[in-house]
Amino acid sequence: MGRYDQNAKVYTKWLKGGRGQGRLENYKPWLQVYNVPSSGRSSRPWSAKIGRVVHCMSDLELSTFLLLEWSEAVVDIREQFPLDLTTTLQIAKTLGFRHPAVRGENIVMTTDFLVSMSSSTHPLLALQVKPSGELDKLRVREKLAIEEQYWKDLNVPFQIVTEHSHDQIKVENIKWFASCFSKLTSLEVLEQLADWWSPIMEQKGSMRLIQLCTDIDVQLNQEPGTSLGQIRLLCSKKVAQFDLSIPFFDILAGDIGFRKISGTKG
């Protein structure tokens, strides 16, 4: 079998391995980055929210994941979620569309993200991520119609996400400190850092953050990037906060605010 083959034998193996099953850190995506020929850059970012790596098949999926990871309304993320094959076959027949297949064999369709929300009225949200240019293709629209009907029958809201759905400045800001998501830092250390930085930010409020951090590294004879790394860490834990509609390289020291934290882990 080629590394991208999908057939009954492969599916039996995946099911035995727990793919498409579980929640939070125990969930295993149906498709993983090495199972799909990606037209973009695939990635496996860490999610502090769910405690595992997440399989993103493109930059657009990565951007979508980062916004979901950052949202406090999101409590669980299940990417590459499998749809019941018998059900999608019936929907395709009803709609008069050809079911997705590879080498003549019908394949399991997937939704890019099945998101569990804190909302009691809409606890689930299904997201399919597509570049806007793909939506002009008839075959793409047919597949989306099958997927949309699948979730409609389950009373789950379904949305198509394109590059126009995102605030790109916000995405880039989250990317700036996303590498710190996986860092386990005690709240005691975070509080100490926040207490040290807070009066400095207030005193140097009109100074650009990047310049301020560079100057402090020189004054304290630290490795270049040390101070900025501390700010990125504090931002990733939401201890330090700023308006994410402002590019991080433009923010002033006074744009940074600090919040009180509690608990035992960061």
Rank of each mutant, 00 (worst) to 15 (best):
D112M: 06
V108C: 08
P131W: 03
V171I: 15
L114S: 13
L144M: 01
C180T: 04
N173L: 04
A92H: 01
K93I: 07
I169P: 01
L135W: 03
V140Y: 01
L138D: 14
Q128I: 00
R103G: 03
V156Y: 05
T110I: 13
G96C: 11
V171P: 02
V161I: 15
L154W: 02
Q90C: 08
T111E: 11
I174Q: 03
W151K: 04
V129G: 08
H164V: 03
V161D: 04
W151S: 07
S116M: 08
P100A: 11
Y150V: 12
L124D: 00
H122V: 08
E163V: 11
N173R: 01
D112E: 05
F181V: 07
L135Y: 01
R141A: 06
L138Y: 11
L135M: 03
N155Q: 10
L125M: 13
T162F: 12
R141C: 09
T110H: 09
L154Y: 05
P131M: 02
A101H: 15
K93V: 12
F181E: 10
W151F: 15
H164Y: 09
F158P: 00
A92V: 05
K143H: 03
R98W: 02
T111L: 13
D153G: 06
I160L: 07
I160K: 06
L135V: 02
Q168D: 10
I91K: 01
I169K: 13
H166S: 10
M109Q: 13
Y150A: 11
S120M: 08
H164F: 10
N106E: 13
S119Q: 05
E147M: 14
E134I: 02
Q90L: 07
D136K: 06
S116Q: 08
Q128D: 10
H99E: 10
F113M: 06
S116R: 05
V161E: 02
I174Y: 01
K137A: 08
S118M: 10
Q168A: 13
D136F: 00
Q90K: 13
F97H: 14
E134H: 08
Q149A: 10
Q159P: 00
R98K: 15
E134Q: 12
A92Q: 04
L114Y: 12
P157E: 13
F177M: 05
